[in-house]
Write a protein that binds this DNA or RNA. Structure first.
Ligand SMILES: [Mn+2]
Ligand SMILES: [Mn+2]
Ligand SMILES: [Mn+2]
Ligand SMILES: [Mn+2]
Lengths: 219, 219
DNA sequence: CCACTTTTTTAGACATATCTAAATTTTATT
DNA sequence: AATAAAATTTAGATATGTCTAAAAAAGTGG
């Protein structure tokens, strides 16, 4: 049996693995989960025991195939529940993450299959994040973070890579949602902030905002 | 904070309280939960501390108002989720209880309010059990257990008071579901079993089955 | 009312998950 | 290469929830 805590650790390790090619560090997991490095060390021993991770003391962590499949399943559940909450129950996209954090741990394969069908096999969650397949594959959205694009590029917002409430509220205030058209007007070298056009009106956003906006380029 | 375990104990105490007017015993809780009397004693101390129960050593347990409201809320969540699983996801009525046992612990008042609205404020769950109101009231269905009725009484099945898989499968095999018409043909004194007519065909059922079938009398 | 049974509680142990503080290992800097 | 700094692990403590075995209280029949 896998505990709720173990699931949260495995999910955090996958999230961090996807951000870089290096092995995941104890400290990065601690900060992702919001706990101490000591607790992470304790848990890594258990995850190793259960063959969910590759781990050598002081050398960092990676997921085994078993761990990767488990983590992907949890993300699949999380994103399907988020879709249900927004599409069926009319939650705002900024409210669903915290509820999905609980729902993602419900154990029933049948439930998720039936939910998937009920939602008509959605490909993306309310934040534009791709929903992993039943087979454990995370589809690649081939959208690019806004901060990687060149000046005068035009594109559509395909998704966000952060689902903090404050961030999503700020986007809503800026009139940015999935499908919004954005043009890069100017890139400020000093702090990597950007002047952008959002649906014909001009705004200035920090690099931290741009980093978490996924854009599909259009002509 | 109330833990998942505490919620299960409080729910069990309410369930047992509804079955008789006496205080609930340690042993009955143990058998309802499927644990030992020792574990129950341990937990009762914690529930007393949190003012969820009235409890004196060796004297039995009852719920405080706070405990009763909490227990009712959990049952409300359980029955709303069961309704969702059957009505929206096409689960069979015999499969939903075990999944609802997990879903009933999801903490989000907003989620339950929105689910209730989405389901169009159902009054009964898939087993015919009344769904408690947001205010913590369990509506009385004023249906009567089949074993309490007289010979030649006719009635409609309004619900069941047991959601064990084996029991529900057996009912399905007998062609009994919510709304089925039943007539009592004969009561066997020896073992309190019954000969009944189910939609024009005759069957013999044990007292244990009759006890868990709620009937509304018709002419 | 006294032995005997049943019920309930307590004692002591174990497993999980977390924390702070201290020790150890790795890495970076002179 | 030695030393300082940073990262990581271990030691020891705490909290929750469970269990078995033993002790204590309540209930029962003669
Ligand atoms: Mn999320
Ligand atoms: Mn999301
Ligand atoms: Mn149920
Ligand atoms: Mn039910």
């Amino acid at each position: 049996m896998i505990t709720l805590s173990e699931e949260n650790y495995i999910k955090a390790i996958l999230t961090l693995s996807l951000k870089s090619l290096e092995k995941v560090s104890t400290n990065s997991i601690a900060s992702e989960i919001g706990t101490t490095a000591a607790s992470v060390s304790d848990m890594l021993k258990k995850l190793l025991e259960k063959k969910l991770i590759n781990y050598e003391k002081y050398k960092g962590v990676s997921l085994t195939n078993k761990g990767r499949v488990l983590a992907t399943t949890i993300i699949r559940k999380h994103r399907l529940w988020e879709t249900f909450l927004v599409d069926c129950l009319n939650f705002d996209w900024s409210e669903v993450h915290i509820v999905a954090e609980q729902l993602e741990h419900i154990q029933s394969e049948k439930l998720i299959d039936k939910l998937d069908k009920f939602l008509e096999y959605p490909e993306f969650d309310p934040h534009g994040e791709p929903i992993p397949t039943k087979e454990g594959i995370i589809p690649n959205s081939n959208a690019i973070p806004l901060n990687k694009l060149n000046t005068f590029t035009k594109g559509l917002v395909m998704g966000v890579t952060l689902d903090e409430k404050k961030f999503l509220h700020y986007l809503t205030k800026l009139n940015i949602s999935i499908g919004t058209k954005i043009t890069i007007e100017e890139k400020i070298d000093f702090d990597n902030s950007l002047n952008i056009k959002i649906n014909d009106s001009f705004h200035h956003v920090s690099s931290n905002v741009a980093k978490h906006l996924l854009i599909k380029i259009i002509k």
